[in-house]
Design a protein around this nucleic acid. Structure first.
Length: 115
DNA sequence: TGGTTGACGGTGG
DNA sequence: TCCACCGCCAACC
């Protein structure tokens, strides 16, 4: 079986906690997993993990690009849109508003009421 | 043991 | 806004 490293296990754990309708960047996941700067390593893990219980479609690049998903970008996009997220082309809009920082979203300040 | 890989990130041009 | 560079990290081979 695949001996998961501590890091890999933590990464998967973090991704599993991303709520529906929210996303996290590879860098966010790395940081939440305790390895700041290991965004690339997280990408590798996502690439290899085919676990249905891990919502890897909610992990995107910092610039908002959906990227990868094993060539199934269309699917990744569909899943996100189905969760209520807005996407233009291959890029997620409003990243700042739906970004999962490990905690809940910001206390809905001023700029979140309007659109 | 050591080099290569890649679903990344930030800076600049 | 888009693209090229360079830096980072853990898994692979």
């Amino acid at each position: 079986m695949h001996q998961m490293t501590e890091f890999e296990r933590r990464v998967l754990s973090v991704v599993r906690r991303i709520p529906v309708g929210r996303v996290a960047t590879y860098g966010d996941v790395a940081a939440l997993a305790g390895r700041r700067g290991a965004a690339r390593a997280v990408g590798n893990i996502m690439r290899r993990c085919g676990r249905p219980d891990v919502p890897c479609h909610r992990v995107i690049a910092a610039g908002g690009l959906l990227g990868g998903y094993g060539g199934h970008e269309g699917l990744k996009r569909s899943l996100l849109v189905a969760e209520g997220l807005r996407v233009r082309g291959n890029r997620l809009l409003d990243l700042a508003r739906v970004r999962f920082a490990g905690r809940r979203p910001p206390p809905a300040g001023r700029t979140s009421s309007e659109r």
